[in-house]
Design a protein around this nucleic acid. Structure first.
Lengths: 207, 207
DNA sequence: ACCTGAACACCGTTCAAGT
DNA sequence: ACCTGAACACCGTTCAAGT
């Protein structure tokens, strides 16, 4: 998985660097990722990355951007597979989100860590984030329009829905849940219970 | 705020280092915190910290531990000021939690960042975390016992309640909310709406 | 256009030595 | 018991130079 150094030299160095960075993050966390080590693994000198990324955080920003694109793809896929019912589509987003976090924790870390690249500074990154979030907003909008979903500011409601799911994914990744009895075996169950609680709040006027 | 170097030399170097570290984190993030710079600000040589902390992450762990103690203090204070009604006590925890995150973002970052010190490795840190979380669990337990609160696993329900509030605080600190129209001016309003939604889910059998 | 190699100013950590 | 100073193996970033 890291032995094909030969092709990179006139090949796709940006891709090779991002791939190495992702490996490093899963091995040692974002803090443990190093531009020089990534260059080494890509079979290239420590100064070479600067031909493709202006600095370390630019590489992380590119990585996070890829992550948001993938997240968006997964959310859209989940909604599409859920069919036409607006509530079913909305509810399907939660497990898709959590599954992404669990299967791609390294992406999740660069996307949402405290020291993640600044979404204001890296414009394309901010746009990728917005595009993924837009799937959720659209889910709320349709549910408000065609189902008994709570009224009010669509974006605000989408944020509140996102928070719990995001919190679950986040806390699971950094082990906060495992220490409290929620692990890979029952995270789906916890998520289902959480979704149910949330939906009870979101369904306007239902008992 | 950083000019009293003179007293430290035979004074309280651990405290001085933690204080400098906290300043550095608020200036440059956890990533930007450096043991050498903290030593410099404490008026001491770069090797001196090793007499008090085994390494960099041990200092961060001590800092996070302080943060959890302070959070616990605030949660207990909020509940006590809310009086005797179990629901009022429970509901009062949310704004107290968010206020801590907003007022002490540097503590929050060391406590809950992805690369935060390992709560398994640093035993006292894990205990401080548990002690803060226990306030929330106790709130749920009392609400279940003396009010129309949803039944089921107390700890599990406490986690779900925590997730949304934690997610709100977390997302606010790293700017994810500001980009979506929630800032210091209306975070209380968003929190209130979120709490209301949550409570609708938590209150068993109510319409 | 893309990469190398030397250079600079930083780190974390260790260790002998000082008081 | 606590701190210093030198040392080592690392970083991120820049820049002249090579192809």
């Amino acid at each position: 998985m890291a032995e094909q150094k030969t092709a990179y030299h006139h090949g796709d160095l940006p891709r090779a660097l991002k791939s190495a960075a992702l490996d490093l993050i899963s091995e040692h966390g974002v803090t443990g990722f190093t531009l020089r080590e990534a260059a080494r693994r890509a079979g290239v000198t420590h100064a070479a990355p600067y031909r493709h990324f202006s600095d370390k955080s630019a590489l992380l920003a590119a990585l996070a951007e890829d992550g948001f694109s993938e997240l968006r793809r997964r959310l859209e896929e989940a909604a599409d597979q859920a069919g036409d019912d607006p509530l079913a589509r909305f509810v399907s987003l939660a497990p898709a989100y959590v599954r992404f976090a669990v299967e791609q924790p390294s992406y999740f870390r660069v996307m949402y860590g405290f020291d993640a690249p600044d979404k204001m500074k890296y414009e394309r990154l901010g746009e990728a984030d917005d595009a993924a979030f837009a799937v959720l907003v659209e889910g709320v909008r349709m549910a408000q329009e065609k189902a008994a979903f709570i009224h009010g500011d669509t974006q605000r409601i989408a944020i509140l829905a996102w928070l719990m799911v995001h919190g679950l994914a986040h806390a699971h990744i950094d082990g906060a849940l495992t220490r409290r009895g929620i692990d890979a075996d029952n995270i789906d169950e916890a998520l289902a219970q959480g979704s149910e609680l949330m939906m009870r709040g979101f369904l306007a006027g239902s008992g």
